[in-house]
């Protein structure tokens, strides 16, 4: 993994170098419009790559679940397996996006007086199946923030790394301060940790691999953080995810 990171850094340096060289070459060939025939200095240079300032974004088109299932059945019968796979994955994606939206609807509109930040609501699905569904919402007021994330068996989620490093089974102390401890959240085992730079983090691992993660920034006490966490209907979320 360290090798991948250094390789990515090397590629970025190479890319920056190429951009520098092409910019210099464009200057030399006189494509710089600072000296235009009208004699005005527009202040704009076409020698360098423009930065994007406008655009309509992408049109949101959640996959049509029934149409994709039908396509996959037809493709499978015709032995067009890659098409069948693509259509099935689109159907899974569409279903997971819908599940994500339903879960978001079920989350509270405010927590500890902090209101939800609707524009930051996120549902992401990879369509791979049992991995990659992520749902997140932020609640914020002034400099206080509570973020909730629901990760459905995602191998990339921070919850995984926390548990893989033994967070579930350990209690960690640094000097005299306890940094991590085990808790129960409405009958579900979890771990709470605190870091001066990040604030509180609570992770609850559900029965079959889904994880609920809460982050609390500038939340004054552990009790306040736990009050926030307990205001979520975990059983309802579990039902949506098919967890017992």
């Amino acid at each position: 993994m360290a090798g991948t990171k250094s390789h990515a850094q090397l590629l970025k340096k190479l890319k920056d170098k190429v951009n520098q060289v092409t910019d210099k070459a464009a200057d030399k060939t006189g494509t710089n419009t600072d000296n235009t025939s009208t004699g005005t200095n527009s202040g704009n240079s076409t020698s360098s790559r423009p930065t994007n300032k406008s655009g309509g974004g992408l049109i949101s088109t959640p996959p049509d679940i029934l149409a994709n299932i039908n396509s996959s059945e037809t493709a499978f019968k015709d032995n067009k397996f890659s098409e069948a796979r693509f259509a099935l994955q689109q159907a899974i994606l569409g279903t997971e996006l819908q599940i994500g939206k339903e879960i978001l609807k079920s989350l509270p509109d405010s927590v500890l007086g902090l209101l939800k930040v609707t524009e930051k609501d996120k549902v992401a699905s990879s369509g791979w199946g049992w991995s990659g569904l992520t749902i997140s919402r932020d609640y914020q007021k002034d400099d206080k923030l509570i973020g909730v994330g629901i990760q459905d068996f995602s191998y990339l989620g921070p919850a995984w790394s926390m548990f893989l490093t033994g967070g579930m089974n350990s209690t960690q102390m640094e000097n005299d301060k306890q940094q991590m401890k085990q808790i129960m959240v409405k009958g579900n085992k979890g771990v709470i940790s605190y870091d001066d730079r990040k604030g509180y983090t609570v992770v609850v691992m559900l029965t079959q691999g889904s994880a609920l993660v809460w982050e609390g920034v500038n939340i004054p006490t552990e009790d306040e953080m736990m009050k926030a966490v307990n205001s979520f209907d975990i059983d309802r979320i579990k039902k949506f995810l098919g967890e017992k």
Partner: peptide
């Protein structure tokens, strides 16, 4: 029943 839909789609993917 979205959860059951997803479950069956994943099983279909497995069979594929």
């Amino acid at each position: 029943d979205l959860e059951d839909t997803r479950y069956n789609l994943m099983l279909a993917l497995q069979q594929l």
